[in-house]
Design a binder for these strands. Structure first.
Length: 257
DNA sequence: ATGGTGGACAATCCA
């Protein structure tokens, strides 16, 4: 069982890269963030032509999530369910057999003194409540992936001291993230990749960020329940980041026995 | 301290 995540930063621009990646790595599920497209314009047919199933919820220009899979999900839903659909383009859940995958695009937060930052912190709290309510008791296979916009450890960013405090790397955000993780998740990435320098995002605006590996690990794969003990590996595929029109993020995936 | 690049979309907003 292979589960992958990718902030594609426009699915219409990155569709060829995504289709090629699906062919090469054959994941059971690929979670996408920042599809940046209305549902009526989502390239569903092109994805289905390759034999893939896909569920998606997007909006014009911003946000948007999707999950592509080999099998059609038994169940799926969008949003945190504590609003009137405002979070639908940031969270998608699929259930396939006994496995649930939740894919989130956590708000970036913009600036420490902005309302968007308060919104981000609150979003983690709402997500904690979502897991607590929807998966009460735990014990089931649950995988949480996505662009979580948090670098938790100093080793999760190229220069912790230089960027601290940042909306993705500061005490409040790390604590908010930890509160969700504390519900019962294991960091699958860190279980397998212990060396420093493994990142998933390199800022477009920083010159030579990729060449100097000035990156961040903000795209995550976590697991709860029995499946957490069945993870056998995790990888970052940096090759798409060297393509002609790369996203600022790259593909991350984990394998489960 | 500022601005850098990229995407969507048509003047800026967002990351």
């Amino acid at each position: 069982m292979r589960i992958a995540t990718f902030n594609c930063n426009s699915i219409r621009v990155r569709l060829p890269a995504i289709l090629a990646w699906l062919e090469k790595y054959s994941p059971d599920l690929l979670a996408l963030q920042e599809t940046k497209v209305r549902d009526k314009d989502f390239p569903r047919d092109e994805i289905a032509a390759g034999g893939w199933h896909v569920v998606y919820c997007g909006e014009k220009s911003y946000n948007g999530v999707a999950i592509i899979g080999k099998r059609e999900p038994d169940e799926f839903s969008f949003g945190l369910e504590d609003d009137d659909g405002g979070s639908n383009t940031r969270l998608v859940r699929v259930k396939i057999g006994g496995l649930t995958v939740v894919n989130t695009y956590i708000p970036h937060g913009r600036a420490l003194d902005s309302e968007m930052f308060d919104f981000k912190l609150a979003w983690f709290g709402r997500l904690r409540a979502y897991f607590g309510k929807r998966f009460a008791g735990g014990g089931n296979d649950l995988v949480w992936v996505g662009d979580l916009n948090v670098a938790r450890l100093p080793m999760d960013v190229y220069d912790s001291k230089a960027v601290w405090p940042h909306v993705c790397h500061c005490r409040e955000v790390i604590d908010a993230f930890d509160a969700v993780v504390g519900w019962g998740f294991e960091d699958v990435f860190r279980r397998h990749i212990r060396e420093a320098g493994a990142y998933t995002f390199w800022d477009y605006r920083q010159r030579g960020a990729l060449e100097r590996n000035r990156g961040w690990r903000i795209d995550h794969i976590l697991a709860a329940g029995p499946i957490a003990g069945r993870s056998v590996g995790c990888r970052v595929d940096i090759e798409p980041r060297r393509a002609e029109r790369p996203s600022d993020h790259t593909f991350v995936f984990a394998d489960f026995a």
